[in-house]
Design a protein around this nucleic acid. Structure first.
Length: 954
DNA sequence: TATCCGACAATGT
DNA sequence: ACATTGTCGGATA
């Protein structure tokens, strides 16, 4: 059978009453397969009449089913296809959730996409339109590779292409001297108009036509666009067309900008894309890209990817609501299914698939039962409120709204299937509250929410006749979320859920970015609740917490910089724990976004109602969204540092460790001297007789130790007066020439005045090192946590943490697994690298107190480790970081032949010796190590408290 | 005056 | 382009 024969036959015979419907359906399907050269049903995975279990018991059938491809339902010619589709959606779970749901009445075809996490999309065409190769392709893909019909791919492609083209034009306009904000605004108008055209809010083809004509006459296009935008701002006439009223603040009567012919051509090509499916985040992207990259941070113009948003919105809003709906649905199904009833069984009634008569018959009482459960849930969906207190261009609100609309669709479909009369009220954009300080982002937010709403309605067969088309959402407000103009704490609207990605801004940059007055007022308004050193994002956490405490919100999920877990910000999370609980957290996530070097945490918390506690992280290549997997771990409690297990935030600094750890010197100016220059000065005499050796020292930082020694020296006058320093002629002249000009521009008066001295000469450190022949250092920020010997002659930079010990035992303990694990767990991070801080990592660490023989065993293992390190460095010529990279590789795939194996071995011996010094068995898991060390820390802190009461003898 | 930190900054390969 | 480590000013306590 050829395609033409197929079309001709069914055009003539679709309404035949002679054959049974089942026979018609099967011969239609087989005919179609032959006409298009497609495989016919055979085997259990591709079959006619696939049986499924029905709601309320009994059996039904899908007319054709192909595993992993589609479920296909036929209806009598002229039937309501939408209803057939709704039935299929109800059974999609039992059909293995096929990616495509196809319905046909012999004359028409509708291919509905059913991919999880996307809005359904319908490809509809008639018998005659089968001649169109595009429609043939859709059917062919349905049989062979349905994934290609996934709207996600198409959507992403359209969005990327649109972003690329429009972004290029925006950049060109800016480079011609137009104001970036105006350019961005103009681009929004264009993109929204293209969208509006493709969803039928503007007369069909109006933009495409304007752009086509405009290629020849750019001036005319500019005038025409201005007139069109003006008409959209008020509603009214544009030529012969009537334009609807778009009152979103986007069309405010501003003139269109002039475009070059090539740009118009590019826009015209772009207008052919299907803009109806464009992802609204394009507006955020465009906005960001049209800005100067240096200004992005200041404007808070960081948009959040859909995946990141979902990882907040799912656990906070959607999962609990879906769970509630699942329970309600199960309850209703159980009620309708039993106790055993006459009408609960399916009886074949001559119709194909599920006939209408197979619905469970319902009594008045059962109607009340069902309505009494569905109605309140729907009302809940339609009245709950979501607040994003830093909503930017509205992406969180948009994504949350889509999730709620999808859930509502499931509820309504279920209600329709069991014959429950539909409600005429829907989840609406007015349930989504936002606060935003940037005027432009604020305008975008309303529009993004509206576009999302219109798209969803369109995809779900609801047309839009509201006028004005875009109402400005007064639930989204243009204002600061933290302070009112008078400097008092700002109020937030009441909401069930608070979600968002508030701006991050460390305390040290706050004054520069936000201004003196604002920063002062902020600290004052939140005094006692947010520490002054905290990041700006913490104020949003505290407000959300306070809203929950006051009963003005139920659950919150916010994204923060991963330093919320660290010392200065942690008090804010501790407050959250005091008035509620953190029920889900991502302690440390990569943040994939151009120009933002940061890692983030996600923190979801409430007032203590949620009982589960989940910690999440990625496994696999965490920077590749396609390759990484989410690992979720249930824990008993999530602590303020966003860990489970032992609560290390309780660890206290121990007096036994006081006065032994220091940051190195902080010169605050170019005091460093190249090796050859310094060496030339060393023995040059001075008129006063002093030796330059007094003020010249090798200057060591982490790089020198971990990679290659730079040989730098530094001029170090310690705490000399100007006159004393001037006795050292060359070094002094060097400092005067190089350092003085820099220091005299410094904002700090003390530093300006004492320009010849280091900012932090660390006299206590020098005193502690004085009696030692050598001492231990560790780079503050480094990939591997290593402790190294440094010669007494060298001066450590502030990037090294100095530990004033010269014995092998201490060196061994510091390099052992217990201390390294402890330091990693209690220390901070800079991006993804661990940081070692004296008070966090060292002062809290309880050293073992072994007998002499065990002590000597540790010292021996320590000396051995040091020797192995040196030998390997000499032999391989590698730096220590590279060496330890190789060691890490060996841990994953052991190879005894590798010379680096000796290093692994040395560390294992050391760990063993240190464990013995503690009296522990070995090996232990990280968690066991931390538990024991914490216990020891708390015991010793308590003992110190007792031994030295607060009132010391005078 | 001693930390802690950076929607980072700079450097080498 | 990627990998790795580094400044130093500011703010708080």
């Amino acid at each position: 059978m050829t395609l033409e024969e197929f079309i001709a036959y069914w055009s003539a015979h679709a309404h035949d009453e002679s054959a049974t419907e089942r026979a018609s359906a099967q011969s239609h399907f087989i005919g179609l397969c032959r006409a298009l050269g497609l495989e016919e049903p055979r085997g259990p995975d591709y079959t006619f009449e696939k049986a499924v279990r029905k709601v309320g018991g009994g059996q039904g059938f899908a007319d054709v089913w192909k595993r992993g491809h589609f479920a296909w339902e036929y209806k009598r010619a002229g039937s309501n296809l939408h209803r057939a589709y709704e039935q299929l959606t109800l059974y999609r779970d039992d059909l293995g959730n096929p990616p495509l749901l196809i319905v046909s009445d012999l004359l028409r075809f509708e291919v509905h996409t059913n991919f999880t996490g996307t809005n359904p999309k319908v490809h509809a065409f008639g018998l005659e339109e089968l001649r169109d190769p595009a429609n043939q392709k859709i059917l062919r893909l349905a049989f062979t590779d349905p994934e290609q019909l996934n709207p996600k791919h198409q959507r992403r492609q359209v969005t990327e292409e649109a972003t690329e083209r429009v972004g290029a034009i925006a950049r060109a306009l800016v480079s011609r001297g137009h104001d970036p904000a105006r350019v961005a605004h103009f681009m929004m108008q264009l993109v929204f108009s293209l969208f509006a055209e493709d969803v039928g809010l503007l007369p069909k083809g109006i933009m495409t036509t304007l752009l086509e004509r405009g290629r020849a006459d750019p001036l005319r296009l500019q005038r025409a666009l201005s007139a069109l935008f003006a008409a959209m701002s008020t509603g009214g006439d544009f030529g012969v067309e009537e334009i609807r009223h778009f009152n979103g603040g986007l069309f405010d009567g501003a003139e269109a900008l002039p475009l070059e012919p090539a740009e118009i051509a590019a826009l015209h090509e772009a207008s052919v894309l299907d803009w109806a499916d464009v992802e609204p985040h394009i507006f955020g992207t465009l906005f960001e890209r049209s800005l100067d990259p240096n200004k992005r941070g200041q404007l808070g113009a960081h948009y959040t990817s859909r995946e990141d948003i979902l990882d907040v919105v799912e656990p906070v809003v959607l999962v609990p609501l879906r769970e509630e709906w699942r329970r309600i649905r199960a309850e209703i199904e159980e009620y309708l299914a039993g106790p055993p009833r006459m009408d609960g069984r399916h009886h074949f009634d001559g119709t194909l698939g599920w006939g209408r008569k197979t619905q469970p018959r319902r009594s008045k009482r059962s109607g009340e039962f069902v309505a009494g459960r569905i109605d309140p849930f729907l009302r809940k969906l339609q009245t709950l409120r979501v607040l994003d207190p830093a909503c930017g261009s509205g992406n969180f609100l948009y994504v949350t709204m889509q999730g709620l609309l999808d859930l509502q669709r499931d509820v309504l479909n279920f209600a329709a299937e069991i014959g429950e009369p539909p409600l005429r009220q829907f989840v609406s954009p007015e349930q989504f509250y936002g606060l935003e300080v940037n005027p432009f982002a604020y305008e975008l937010a309303s529009m993004v929410v509206w576009i999302g709403y219109l798209q969803w309605k369109r995809a779900n067969g609801e047309s839009n006749h509201d006028n004005p088309v875009l109402r400005k959402l007064n639930t989204i407000q243009l204002r600061d979320a933290l302070l009112d103009p008078d400097g008092s704490e700002a109020g937030w609207p009441e909401a069930d859920y608070i979600v968002g990605n508030p701006p991050f801004l460390g305390s040290s940059r706050m004054r520069d970015e936000l201004g003196e007055a604002y920063t002062e007022a902020l600290r004052r308004a939140y005094q006692g609740r947010v520490p002054g050193g905290a990041d700006l994002v913490c104020y949003f956490f505290e407000k959300a917490r306070a809203q929950i405490e006051a009963g003005r919100a139920r659950r919150a999920g916010l994204i923060a910089t991963n330093s919320v877990r660290q010392k200065v910000n942690r008090p804010v999370l501790e407050r959250v724990l005091r008035t509620g609980g953190i029920f889900l957290a991502w302690p440390d996530r990569p943040w994939i976004q151009d120009g933002a070097a940061v890692r983030v945490s996600i923190v979801c918390f409430d007032g203590g109602i949620e009982a589960s506690r989940t910690l999440c992280h990625f496994a696999g290549a965490e920077d590749d969204p396609a390759a990484r997997q989410v690992v979720a771990r249930a824990v008993a409690r999530i602590h303020a540092d966003l860990t489970g297990g032992p609560d290390l935030t309780r660890a206290r600094p121990l007096r036994e460790n006081a006065g032994r750890s220091f940051e190195g010197v902080k010169p605050a100016g170019p005091f460093d001297v190249p090796a050859d220059v310094a060496e030339a000065w060393l023995d040059l005499p001075n008129p006063s007789g002093v030796s330059n050796r007094d003020v010249l020292r090798p200057y060591i930082n982490g790089d020198d130790l971990l990679d290659r020694p730079s040989g730098r020296w530094i001029v170090d006058f310690q705490r000399m007066s100007l006159e004393e320093a001037a006795r050292y002629r060359q070094p002094f002249a060097y400092v005067e020439q190089r350092v003085r000009p820099v220091r005299e521009r410094n904002r700090d008066r003390g530093k300006r005045a004492r320009w010849w001295l280091h900012d932090r000469p660390r006299p206590e450190m020098r005193a502690a090192l004085e009696p030692l022949a050598r001492y231990i250092v560790t780079p503050q920020t480094a990939k591997h946590r290593l402790f190294l010997w440094l010669d007494k002659a060298a001066l450590p930079s502030s990037l090294l943490v100095v530990l004033a010990f010269d014995d092998d035992f201490s060196f061994g303990v510091l390099n052992s697994a217990p201390h390294v694990r402890w330091a990693l767990a209690v220390g901070g991070t800079l991006e993804d690298r661990p940081r070692y801080f004296p008070s966090d990592c060292f002062e809290t660490f309880p050293f073992p107190r072994p007998d002499e023989s065990r002590r000597e065993a540790v010292a021996r293992a320590a000396r051995h480790l040091e020797q192995v390190r040196q030998r390997l460095q000499q032999r391989t010529g590698l730096g220590l970081t590279q060496l330890y990279n190789a060691l890490e590789g060996l841990r994953l795939s052991p190879d005894a032949a590798d010379p680096v194996h000796a290093l692994l071995d040395a560390h294992e011996q050391l760990d063993q010796a240190v464990a013995a010094a503690y009296g522990w068995e070995w090996p232990l898991s990280d968690e066991q190590i931390l538990e024991r060390l914490l216990k020891l820390n708390l015991e010793r802190a308590a003992a110190e408290g007792l031994a030295e009461p607060e009132c010391e003898p005078v």
